[in-house]
Design a protein around this nucleic acid. Structure first.
Lengths: 113, 113
DNA sequence: CGCCATTGCTTCAGTTAGTGAAGCAATGTG
DNA sequence: CACATTGCTTCACTAACTGAAGCAATGGCG
């Protein structure tokens, strides 16, 4: 009866890409100009390097970011959003709007609901 | 979960609310008119009742949905988005747009050639 | 009467995702 | 020579989620 099974549902498909714990914050940081592993690690305070590594690899496989390695010492690896990755930025903008209106406003004006 | 470093970051705050595996799909279904436990369970194909129960409870505590119990047999419980919950719908619309453009187009293209 | 179906869960044991601390290669600096 | 640096990996641990089963309470069927 449903018009779309879950695997054909665009919301489901996007949720699969995006629902990892740090994914959206990682994309936010890449969109804001961060590009290196240690830079992301510092910005996403609390992430374990293992998780960051796994996320970066998964997002690379999904074509959301690109990885450029420079054979220097110490090694340098730069990550950048692809067009497909940049297309997620409006989603992050929505999250920023939502957080500002509904999650931070509570603290600033507790009486106003 | 430990607090994110920048607890004032609206994107982080929204990510905390939204990053559970089924959260966004659950909100999508509530926005689309589903309201009962078994209805949601059927729509979210693959979710365990335990996870659904936990998610519903967490979202209720966060003020994103409301729970109405009717003392009938078999029991009836209806869930509905609050205003704070409905404010997440634009996010889901963005996900639908993204999924349609970037995740389903891949599958349609080979047939379209 | 006895049996089954129904709803909205809970309980249990098991798997997967994420954590936190440590370590490693390779080299330039003090 | 010790030390710092980058971009990771490995390990043991915990939190999150799964899948199957079960429960209370009652109405319908035979």
């Amino acid at each position: 009866m449903s018009a779309l099974s879950n695997s054909e549902c665009p919301v489901c498909r996007t949720a699969e890409v995006v629902c990892g714990k740090w994914t959206l914050l990682l994309i936010r940081d890449l969109a804001a100009g961060s590009s290196r592993f240690c830079e992301l690690e510092r910005s996403l305070e609390g992430i374990s390097p293992r998780t960051l590594s796994l996320r970066l690899r998964a997002l690379e496989e999904e074509g959301i970011l690109e990885r450029h390695t420079y054979p220097e010492v110490p090694p340098r690896v730069e990550y950048a959003l692809t067009v497909k990755g940049e297309a997620l930025v409006p989603l992050i903008d929505d999250m920023r709007r939502y957080g500002t209106r509904w999650l931070l406003a509570d603290e600033l004006e507790p009486a106003a609901i």
